[in-house]
Each structure stands twice: as C-alpha cells, then as structure tokens.
C-alpha cells in the first residue's frame, strides 16, 4: 500500500526554485530517508508534504488525501516534527504535552508519549531549561501524541548526543515495525543507512538518486584499500588502483572478489598486503560522487 505519493512537486520562493519536479512514493510501514546537503530542499519538501505550504506544481497525496485541501483530515493520521518550531518556554514538559493533547484527537496519555521519547525524568522541568537534545525529544513526544500512521521527521536527531540518537533510532524502528510509515530527512548519512529501507537524495531542489537502500548502495560497488608493499609498481597489480596517501585503493563492483584477486596475486609473490580493508559503498561515497562535491 502506498502511504505517500509525490508527483512532479515544485515550489519557488520569489522566483528561486527550492524544489523542482520531485516525485517518489513511500509504502506503508516503510522508513524513507530524504537526504541532501543544507539548502537542497528537504525542509521545503516536508512542509509541502505536511500541507504547511501550497505547491506551485505537482501533487501530493497522503493516504490518498491532499494535505493542503484536506489538512484537518490528514492530521488525524499524521505526526509532524518540524526542523524548527517554538515552545512555550514557561510551561513544563508535562504541561506542554497536556496542552498539545488538547489539539490532538484521541491523544496518547502524556506520560506514555514522554516515556516513548525518553523524557519522563524531565516531566516537571520548564521547557526553557531543556538542552537542545531534550527539546528535540519533546518535539518527538508531541509528534507521537496522536498515534500517527504516517510520521514526518525533519532532522529528528540534530542536536542530540549519541545516546539520544540511538534511543530515537530505536523508537523509529519500533514504530515502523508496528506499521507506521516514516519519512525522515537527515544529513547524518549513518542515520539514514541504519534506519531507512529506501531513500531519495536531493541536490539543488531535484532528486538525483533514489531507490531501495540496499540496491542503491550495491549499484555503487565498493572498495578495497591496502598499503602498497615497498618496491611494488602500482602498474604491476592485477587490478587498477588509485593512490590515496600511502594507500592503494581499488574500486570494484564486487569488492570481495577484487580482494581475493589481489590477495592471490600477493601470495604468489610472497608479499603482504598490510592494512587491508574491504567495504561496500556507503552513503558517504554516494554523496561524494554527487556533482559539485570536492573529493
């Protein structure tokens, strides 16, 4: 089942095209990551998907509904965590969640939302005294209040310490495991790689790569790196390599096979390939290969 469907989406700010011809689909229960550098249009896309902005071109459907025209209906099923939104600084965490419960149909008990976001210990603290990471947890608690079927998270872990980040990943995984559709943006590539099953990479408002996480990474091959033994001419190796400092790096569609070839070659000559490292492509490789990046 398709939970989110985006076709030909476009949005300009006073003539500046922030989002151009963006199309993708997210299935129910899937975690979908929207990646891209700062300014690539992720937040604008999320604000279009949540009905906070009206698109100039294209269509958005969330469970078949238009988020601008049917915002009230869409909100019955969606939770939204904006990249930046304000709190009432003088309310406590518990009061904030209670106040928000008033704007939510059939809200979770406040305590349960705080428990999920790992913020129970701070229930009596005023919002102005929270750290950046704790405020982000409160943002998450509010987004989860309405037991959403579809969750939009714009940079959910920015400002969190590593523990907070891991807790949040765990919550997101559990929600998705129970059927919640999650669309998240992030510039932490590790976060996307660990959580998401599919992705789209944006650059200057356009989608430049998209698909399933595993296939997208597999399609980019991998690399084998090792220290070149003394006196060995890189030209004499059985596979082409490039130099990165004192490392020789071999890029290959199948890095395991390339490593075997190199090791067999070395064994035949009684050489050691010190510091050998074999790995599949990461999102970072994919990012660095984007046009305009400096390697």
């Amino acid at each position: 089942m398709t939970a989110i469907q985006v076709r030909g989406l476009g949005k300009s700010y006073g003539g500046f095209p922030a989002v151009r011809d963006v199309s993708f689909e997210v299935s129910q229960g899937e975690i979908f990551a929207l990646l891209g550098r700062n300014g690539s249009g992720k937040t604008t896309t999320v604000e279009l998907l949540t009905g906070l902005r009206r698109p100039d071109a294209g269509t958005v459907r969330v469970h078949g509904l238009d988020p601008v025209a049917d915002r009230a209906a869409v909100r019955q099923r969606t939770g939204v965590m904006l990249q930046e939104a304000g709190f009432f600084p003088d309310l406590t965490v518990a009061q904030t969640v209670d106040t928000w419960g008033g704007f939510t149909a059939a809200p979770r008990p406040g305590g349960e939302a705080l428990e999920l976001a790992g913020l129970s210990a701070k229930a009596g603290t005023r919002v102005r005294q929270l750290s950046g990471g704790e405020k982000r947890r409160l943002d998450l608690a509010l987004a989860l209040l309405g037991r959403p079927d579809v969750l939009f998270l714009d940079e959910p872990t920015t400002g969190m310490d590593p523990e907070g980040r891991r807790d949040t990943w765990q919550v997101i995984r559990e929600l998705a495991g129970r059927g919640t559709t999650v669309l998240l943006t992030t510039h932490y590539l590790e976060e996307a790689q660990r959580l998401a099953s599919s992705l789209a990479v944006m650059d200057a408002g356009r989608i430049v790569a998209s698909g399933g996480m595993a296939e997208t990474l597999a399609a980019r091959g991998g690399r084998v790196a090792f220290r070149l033994p003394d006196g060995v001419d890189p030209e004499s190796l059985p596979l082409p390599v490039t130099r990165e400092g004192d490392l020789a790096v071999c890029r290959a569609d199948d890095p395991d096979l390339a490593a075997q070839t190199l090791l067999t070659w070395a064994a035949g000559r009684g050489l050691r390939l010190a510091g050998l490292e074999v790995r599949a492509a990461t999102l970072e490789d994919l990012f660095l290969d984007l046009p305009g990046s400096v390697r």
Binding site: T50, L52, A72, R75, Q76, V80, L82, E84, A85, G86, F87, F88, W100, F103, T104, A105, L142, A143, G146
Partner: peptide, 11 residues
C-alpha cells in the same frame, strides 16, 4: 517564536 507554525502541525 514559531509557535504558530507548530500549532499548524496539530489538528
């Protein structure tokens, strides 16, 4: 303070 923006993410 972006409170209105947050209110618009509610019901």
């Amino acid at each position: 303070q972006l409170v209105l923006k947050r209110l618009r993410t509610s019901r």
